[in-house]
């Protein structure tokens, strides 16, 4: 498409108050209607672990979060759409001293270099392992189509996912369920 097309002239800015649960904490904020969910998370809530890489169409997936149980791209939602939603971002996955097995997998297997795609990538892995605890390599690759990594060549990411899957499979069911409560 033409990069710098003639565009509509701006009109009046509306706002709306929304309430969202993010990583277990409830936030109530008045936001401009046009504000993208990713900007709400990053700039209103200060959760800067969710990144922006493609600006437009969501192809890069760096802004992936889990919204009401599904991994979605937070740059393709308005914040107002998340009113009443339950959201998981990378900040809710695990703390540096208490990492989620997915994070451990990425650490152990060197599944990240610059780390920019990693939060979004792990959100997609979360969604994958929640529904498919023992994915094949092909299934892992397909599940990550929506998350571009420019550094790793994906090889170590796949090993990271396998590592996490094995770790999780070895846990008692209750613990496993706790890991996937979103």
């Amino acid at each position: 498409m033409h990069p710098l097309q003639d565009v509509q002239k701006p009109g009046v800015e509306g706002t709306k108050t929304i309430q969202v649960r993010v990583n277990g904490q409830i936030y109530k904020r008045e936001v401009p209607i046009r504000m993208l969910l990713v900007d709400f998370l990053r700039e209103e809530l200060g959760l800067t672990g969710t990144h922006v890489g493609c600006s437009v169409e969501g192809r890069c997936g760096a802004c992936t979060i889990v919204l009401n149980g599904n991994n979605v791209k937070s740059c393709l939602l308005l914040a107002v759409q998340a009113d009443g939603a339950d959201i998981l971002t990378v900040e809710g996955l695990g703390e540096p001293d208490n990492l989620h097995p997915i994070q451990e997998g990425f650490w152990e297997k060197h599944g990240l270099q610059c780390g920019y795609c990693t939060p979004g990538m792990m959100m997609s892995v979360y969604n994958l392992l929640k529904v498919n605890p023992h994915p094949s390599v092909a299934e892992i690759r397909e599940a990550l189509v929506g998350n571009i990594c420019r550094c790793t060549g994906y090889e170590h990411i796949i090993e990271a996912v396998q590592y996490a899957a094995d770790r999780i499979a070895a846990m008692p069911k209750e613990e496993r369920d706790k890991l996937f409560s979103y």
Binding site: T48, E91, P96, L99, W107, L112, G115, Y116, T118, M122
Partner: peptide, 21 residues
């Protein structure tokens, strides 16, 4: 060995240019 920069990046605590205001 595992990388020492990773825990912060894995926890979403990396500090990139977009995070500086």
């Amino acid at each position: 060995i595992r990388r020492r920069e990773d825990p912060r990046l894995l926890a979403g605590k990396g500090k990139y240019i977009g995070d500086i205001t």
